[in-house]
Every structure is written in structure tokens, then in C-alpha cells.
């Protein structure tokens, strides 16, 4: 009985699927799927070669500090970093005093102790980086109807995040005459995809056009440690900094991981030896 009912149910599903297959194939033949500009011309991130990659890779504190500088002088005009506290910056090599100075450079929301009205005060080490816009409406109003996303987790919120940030920041191109790796020209293949007014062409962005204009240019930020002041370095450094802001415990994680793996491998050998010894009188 189970087998008869099961067979009938099975036949039902199989018939529905076979009809679906017929449907899929006939649609496929009638209307072959059109290629999309996003699919043909979207570029995967270029590799920047970061110090924190690989099994034993660690953050380079000097690079992170340069990245913080780029964030403060460029990105922070529009993008918040709301999940990071100033005190966290001690982890990238700043002293307690330096952290306090950095915090003082930001105004955080507060209340006037006399009147209770909203006010601002100097940041403290225990504060988080303040929001740039009080709410989404304000963010849209100031940015041509686009919301600049918070950057705290950006490096984990995109596929291959650090390389994506690096590639995006250095990937602005003129759309006119842009060709992909296969040598196909975007505007010849897809004349409708001309970048709309107010957007900017960038093949590393999923939809090829984004609201942010090219934010960094050579020489815009002055590094104090002798690193060349190029847009490529800014992009690399700020991408590394944003990886740190998204995954601040990466160093501790890898150190603990290595110790754990060594421990477990030894345990496995011991356990296997013990198993062999216990089973040695039994053919299995």
C-alpha cells in the first residue's frame, strides 16, 4: 500500500517536473536569454596583496594607521564607522593618550547639561565613531538621494571585501570606449547602459554605476612615514584599515588557531595509537 501510494505521488512529482522541463526547454528555444551588461562587464576584484592574507598573515599596524588617516581625511566626510570605538584603536598601535587625542577630534552627540537640548561634545576613548548623518533622510538629502553605507563591516559585507574596496576605489574609468578583458566594448554592445546623470562608471561595482564619485586622487593625503602619496596606496591602506575594523580579532584568531591545530594533530596521533593498541588482539 505504501509503495502504491508512494509510486503515485512519485509519478505526480515526476510528471509535474517533466512538464516543467518541456516548458523550460521550449521557452529557452523561443526566447534565448539575453546577456546583461552587469554579467558581461562586471570585473572581479584585483588582488592588492595584503599582509593579513594567508594562514599566518597579520595586520601591519603602520598600514592600518595610514588607513585610519585616509578614512578620517577622506571617507569620514560621508561614511560612518559606527561599530568601532576609539578605544579599539589601541589595537593598531596607538597609546592611550593618542587615542584620546583622536577621539577629541570627533564631535559626538550629547545633551546640554543646563537645558537638556541636543548638543555635541568632544569624543572620549569609550565613544564609538559618531554617525555622519543623524538619519537616512538626512543622508539622502545630502548625497543626491543615495545613502553612504556605514563602513564598519564593509570588508566582510562584500565578496572578497578588502580587494573589492581596493579595486573599487582605484577602478573608476571613463565609460566611453571601455572594453572588458575579451575586448568587447561596453557601449557598442549595450548602448542603453550609458551611465545616468549623477552616477559614476566603475566596472568593479555590481551594477557598473554608483553614486560615489571617485573619492581619492594622488597627493590628496600627506603621509608622515614616507609612504608614497598615491591613490593606489591610499586605497590599499584604507582597505586594510576597513578589514581591521570589520575583523579586529583576526590576529588573536589565527594565533589561537595554530595552537589549537597543533594540539589536535597530536591528539589525533595519540588517539589513533590508543585505538590501534586496544584493537590489536581483534581482527576487524
Amino acid at each position: 500500500m505504501v509503495r502504491i501510494l508512494g509510486g503515485l505521488v512519485g509519478l505526480g512529482f515526476v510528471l509535474a517536473l517533466l512538464l516543467g522541463i518541456y516548458d523550460t526547454v521550449s521557452n529557452w528555444i523561443k526566447t534565448p536569454p539575453a546577456a546583461t551588461a552587469e554579467h558581461e562587464f562586471h570585473e572581479h576584484p584585483r588582488k592588492a596583496g595584503f599582509s593579513f592574507e594567508g594562514v599566518l598573515g597579520k595586520y601591519d599596524n603602520r598600514q592600518l594607521q595610514r588607513g585610519l588617516q585616509v578614512y578620517k581625511e577622506v571617507c569620514a566626510a560621508c561614511h560612518s564607522l559606527r561599530l568601532v570605538s576609539f578605544r579599539d584603536l589601541e589595537a593598531i598601535g596607538y597609546s592611550e593618550g593618542q587615542v584620546k587625542t583622536i577621539a577629541k577630534g570627533f564631535q559626538v552627540p550629547s545633551i546640554n547639561p543646563e537645558t537638556g537640548e541636543p548638543a555635541t561634545r568632544d569624543g572620549l576613548a569609550s565613544d564609538r565613531f559618531p554617525l555622519v548623518y543623524a538619519n537616512d533622510v538626512a543622508a539622502r538629502a545630502a548625497n543626491n538621494n543615495a545613502i553612504p553605507p556605514d563602513l564598519s563591516l564593509m570588508a566582510k559585507a562584500r565578496h572578497d571585501g578588502p580587494n573589492y574596496i581596493y579595486s573599487l576605489l582605484t577602478g573608476y574609468k571613463a565609460q566611453e570606449g571601455y572594453k572588458n578583458e575579451k575586448g568587447e566594448e561596453l557601449l557598442k554592445q549595450f548602448p542603453d547602459t550609458k551611465t545616468p546623470q549623477g552616477l559614476h562608471f566603475n566596472p568593479y561595482f555590481a551594477t557598473l554605476n554608483l553614486a560615489m564619485a571617485q573619492p581619492i586622487k594622488d597627493g590628496q593625503v600627506t603621509y608622515s612615514d614616507g609612504t608614497a602619496a598615491t591613490a593606489d596606496n591610499y586605497a590599499k591602506d584604507v582597505a586594510a584599515f576597513l578589514m581591521w575594523s570589520a575583523e579586529p580579532k583576526l590576529g588573536a584568531r589565527k594565533t589561537a588557531g595554530l595552537a589549537t591545530l597543533i594540539f589536535l594533530v597530536i591528539f589525533c596521533f595519540l588517539a589513533y595509537g590508543a585505538k590501534k593498541q586496544i584493537w590489536r588482539g581483534v581482527k576487524d
Binding site: G6, G10, L11, G20, T24
Partner: peptide, 16 residues
């Protein structure tokens, strides 16, 4: 299409 073929086998396997 591949999904439909694979789903067909899944049900056919167990029920037929």
C-alpha cells in the same frame, strides 16, 4: 533545466 532533471531523479529514485 539541470535542477529539474536532478529533482526528477530524486523523486524517481525513492518513489519509483
Amino acid at each position: 533545466l539541470i535542477g529539474q532533471l536532478a529533482s526528477t531523479y530524486y523523486f524517481a529514485h525513492f518513489l519509483l
